[in-house]
Nucleic acid binder design. Structure first.
Lengths: 269, 269
DNA sequence: TTGCTCCTCACGTCACGTGAGGTGGC
DNA sequence: TTGCTCCTCACGTCACGTGAGGTGGC
């Protein structure tokens, strides 16, 4: 016969746990001294404790364990319960994989934003863009409705997105209601499905400027950009591109004063 | 301003949850009627509720959320917390993968046992065994110590085990203390490491019998087997094999009366 | 009056852990 | 006496859910 402390050492279960198991009726001491209340366990209980510990590792609830101990004495009797347990675990696995995926995306988005912010110059610059694969939805309406397009692309290509969202603007003037634009995101790969088209966005020479602040103040940056283009005598082609380097985050909207948008106009060489 | 019921419909949080969030200080109603105690939420609270729901999905504890809401207003501020959350989730993922692995093994062991039991004939039979890859430990001592060998192999080759454990007996007589035997399991693949050797166990012609019952009654089955072999005039070779088709399970020991062991003796052709 | 929405308060969930205060035998 | 092991009892954890009993306005 072992005292509760000795039995705890043998089984690796804490004394508190052993007392609790008695209360729950899963592991009853072999005898209890009615003078002192001391619990004593005999050698046979070690095996039962092992079974309980095993089942707890598999996350069986204590009530289920109590029932199993009453009714089963062979692994074979447990098949159904084990299978339902497995299904439960598989469910949790799926769930955690999903949340980890979301976390990965949020984190990498933040990191990309950070590095982009750190080397941001607000000067008008000329550069050459590489062609890139994009997934996009062509839309008509208000520019502010672009977010719906981003959500649509996000839902379909979640894992394959590899850069910040962009709006391609096909009008050559500002339109309030019937604007013609495309909500798109760079992707690593993917197939067109329904409204979302996957295609290569051509590269080329462009003039760009970083706009810092809320979207409705973009006009100022367009002015600087167009002034520069006129001075140089360049000829532009549509679509014009707005790259949302830092906009509302996935969790917080953030302060629009800190939004960062790159406006790119393609020019003929 | 929305009543708690309306706000619940908008945000997808239950009324009970909203009241609880107030108590915890994470989402305070915009005003509370001091006559009726009715809570009212304005449109700005919708955004906060969204943030809370998002963070809860990522399994942030409420206390952490309360702090985040007090101190952050940009995803960027959250990077460190998100990363530690990701580490936590990754941990749980690992854990669940492991338990799922264990469950898979237990379940497939039970299923194999079942099918083996269902077509078990207790007659002495002759058959041809295919060669198989095994991982085993050669041991000296009592046959009953074989279990330690199985555990050793199990720890090292867990995932690659593809059949029931076997004992190879190199003695030609029963030895109580200084027996020479090998605890081994069929594996799909693997490399020898330390005491555990991986090698091919040759196939060939054999005479076998199924023994039902506790191990210490194997003598009876050996008797039948050897009688048969003598009658036929066969010549046997070592090692003799005991295949533990059904023995103690991974959870319950089960009743030894139902143990099923196949005894195989290889014969020269 | 009935039905509806809202309220508070107390308790339950799950598997223990914490901590206070006390006992019995060496 | 001190130190050790054991005991009981009450409360805490975490994010809510359940349910009883009641209110106020249409």
């Amino acid at each position: 016969m072992f005292s509760i402390g000795e039995f705890s050492t043998i089984t690796g279960l804490t004394v508190k746990t052993l007392r609790f198991y008695q209360e729950e009726g899963v592991l009853i001491p072999s005898c209890v001294d009615d003078q002192t209340g001391y619990r004593y366990y005999d050698a046979g209980k070690v095996e039962i404790a092992r079974v309980i510990a095993q089942l707890r590792k598999l996350e069986f609830p204590l009530a289920a364990i109590a029932e199993i101990l009453r009714e089963c004495d062979d692994d074979n009797d447990l098949l159904a319960q084990l299978e339902s347990r497995r299904a439960g675990i598989a469910d949790k696995l799926r769930q955690y994989k999903e949340t980890k995926g979301t976390l990965d995306q949020i984190i990498s988005a933040i990191q990309k934003t950070r590095s982009a912010m750190s080397d941001a110059s607000l000067q008008v610059t000329e550069k050459t863009l590489e062609p890139m694969l994009i997934a996009g939805v062509r839309m008509r309406g208000k520019y502010s409705e672009c977010g719906q397009g981003f959500r649509q692309v996000g839902r379909m290509f979640g894992r394959h997105i590899c850069g910040p969202p962009m709006m391609l603007i096909y009008d050559t003037e500002f339109k309030e209601n019937d604007a013609d634009f495309e909500a798109c995101m760079p992707v690593r790969k993917g197939e067109s499905t329904g409204e979302v088209q996957v295609r290569e966005l051509p590269g080329g020479r462009c003039v760009s400027v970083l706009h810092k602040g809320p979207y409705d103040e973009c006009g100022r940056s367009y002015e600087r950009l167009l002034t520069f283009i006129k001075e140089k005598g360049y000829e532009t082609t549509t679509p014009c591109r707005e790259v949302y380097i830092k906009g509302p985050g996935m969790i917080f909207k953030g302060n629009p004063k800190n939004y960062l948008t790159e406006i790119q106009m393609m020019v003929r060489e």
